[in-house]
Amino acid sequence: MLALQILIDGFAISALYALGATGFTLIFGVSGVLNLSHGAIMVLAAVAAWAAASVLHLGSYSGALLGVAVAVVASFATYFAVVQPIQKSRRIATEEKEIFILTSTLLWGIMIQELIAYFFTNNAKTVLPIVEGVVNIFGERTTKNEIFTAVVCCVSIGLLWLLVNRTRTGKAVLAASMNPRGVTLLGLELGSIYLVVWGIYGILAGIAGVLLGMFLGVSSYSVGPLTASAFSIVVLGGLGSVSGSLIAAFVVGYLETITAYLISPAYRTIPALLLLVAVMYVRPQGLLGRR
């Protein structure tokens, strides 16, 4: 029975991790940017959805939509206010752009986090779930919200796959992630591809944030751990590899769940971190990464 429990709970958590990491890895693939304000954008989406219900008295659907919309706005703001100025700057040497983007997205994330704490305190917030109640799966009482979370994550990732593989814009994005210079040679505007990618990223991070808010709840303290977990999953999977991230998300999600159930919830994240160090040591490019 415990095995079934782990299977169900692990799936929901893993799917959530996968969704959060997909957008993150997509941006890296296309523009080489590691966005360390990721956790802040997720928490912002969840807090916006919470505020919609508690402060503006909107329903749970409108609240969730508002949360995602806020994440998209935050994503574009990150791109235009922080990332683009560095990419275009002539005063920063090319080989140093990476550290500048890392530092400034980190600072940007802290700014968002502090504003959230200032306006809504740093206590945890939980978003009003869209579906409430529980169902029995082979005798295991499972919340409908958990199933909802897993389904939305899988559908979102599926839609993304269709977008990337079946539409013209998507194919351009895919091409850009494989070879940015090649795309410009083909006459495609890299700038507009960046916009599309940051838009997709905003939607994915927003959905992931709102779902996390419904499933477990978030606080401004969650910002750092969320960024770190997305970063770990993406590197574990191999930077820029979406399928690698998906696999890594499930490895980490299940490893954490198994540890929490079988050993102790206190040790939850430790085995995943040790695994990460081990992988870095024997296979530095990650599970599916290209060197």
Binding site: E98, L102, V235, L274, Y281, Q285
Partner: peptide
């Protein structure tokens, strides 16, 4: 330094980040 010096760039960044997280957990 043992694992960190084998890797570069973001991978090095992550290895050092994970070291902090592990210490914090312990």
């Amino acid at each position: 330094a043992l694992p960190a010096l084998r890797v570069r760039g973001p991978y090095f960044g992550l290895t050092t980040l994970v070291a902090v997280l592990i210490l914090q957990n312990f």
